[in-house]
């Protein structure tokens, strides 16, 4: 980026003296001809336009298709508010749980050497490999009416499937690896010298963690939490299986979008969807800012 700005700027100034026009620089052997370059850029951007930009634009076009009045009404009606509240509740439980797990797992895996470490990392990655529908299914088989614990739960009048606990469990399952997966390589890269120094200087374990480890992995931690949060708010497949679609009670925002869409209330569906889209855009912005910050830091450290 910086190259383009520095080469573009002098061109804006009038030339100081009439220099002889330089001969066109010969193309390097490790570069493509300009027409190839522009063609490739155009094809890549058209592909991204069709698959990424158009869907984003379609959400907002759909949301305001019938005016701002209906838009506001759609996101302020009781069922929509209930869905927003439920989504926030689910996120407030599942994201912190996975955060604590991620930090604990990263500490155990990155700071110690033990047998079976790579197998443990594979197990932690497991939820990413499994279809969200199966993530829902396993909890139905465990807690559903015909599941392993179903009869016992029925006797004690505890509802997990078709209720909020099931939604929390399914969401926690699909977002399980996010924080751990971000922190493990980062903490492995940083080694344990700083922690060992802190301990030698008399800090206890908690002080070492709070004052040495945590500041070092701060950005990686936020990065993982941001992605975890986006997925938790938007999870659809796993939640669809366990929710039972009880309107206003077990419908999260994505499920509310589905219900509205299936009832042909397209403008309302896109209105609620636009809130989730804003969340996605904020996520991408924060993510890029962190990448930019940490990349710069890494480059400075390298020099």
């Amino acid at each position: 980026m910086s190259v383009t700005t520095t080469t573009a700027r002098p061109a804006a100034h009038p030339p100081a003296a009439p220099l002889p026009r330089p001969r066109r620089a010969r193309r390097l052997a490790t570069e493509e001809a300009p027409w190839v370059r522009y063609t490739l850029i155009t094809i890549a951007l058209l592909f991204l336009l069709c698959f990424l930009v158009l869907p984003l634009a379609a959400v907002f076009a759909g949301a305001f298709a019938q005016g701002a009045g209906l838009y506001l009404e759609s996101i302020r009606e009781p069922d929509a508010l209930a869905a927003i509240r439920l989504t926030l509740t689910v996120v407030a439980i599942s994201v912190p749980a996975n955060l604590v797990f991620g930090v604990a797992a990263a500490w155990a895996i990155a700071k110690f050497e033990f047998r079976g470490k790579s197998f443990l990392i594979t197990l932690i990655d497991l939820p990413f490999a499994i279809s969200p529908v199966i993530a829902g299914l396993i909890f139905v088989l465990l807690f559903g009416a015909q599941g392993w614990l179903g009869p016992w739960l029925g006797e004690h009048n505890i509802r997990i499937i078709f209720a909020v606990p099931g939604i929390v469990l399914a969401t926690a399952f699909v977002t399980f690896p996010f924080v751990a997966r971000e922190l493990i390589p980062l903490m492995q890269e940083q080694g344990k010298d700083e922690e060992e120094s802190a301990l030698t200087l008399g800090a206890n374990g908690w002080q070492t963690f709070w004052r040495v480890t945590l500041p070092n992995v701060k950005w990686g931690l936020i990065y993982g939490v941001i992605l975890c949060n986006a997925r938790a708010m938007g999870e659809f497949g796993a939640v669809a299986v366990v929710s039972g679609h009880i309107r206003g009670i077990t419908t999260t925002m994505p499920l509310h979008v589905e219900i509205l869409y299936n009832e042909y209330q397209f403008a309302a569906a896109f209105a609620v969807a636009s809130l989730l889209t804003l969340l996605a855009i904020v996520t991408l912005v924060v993510k890029s800012v962190i990448e930019w910050k940490t990349d710069r830091r890494r480059r400075r450290a390298a020099h």
Partner: peptide
């Protein structure tokens, strides 16, 4: 453009589904 590539990770799948259908 670089940031936008990650959109499918950040945008809820149901939202993507109805948007693609509309397009």
């Amino acid at each position: 453009v670089d940031a936008l590539v990650d959109l499918p990770f950040a945008l809820p799948t149901a939202v993507a589904g109805i948007a693609l259908t509309a397009i």
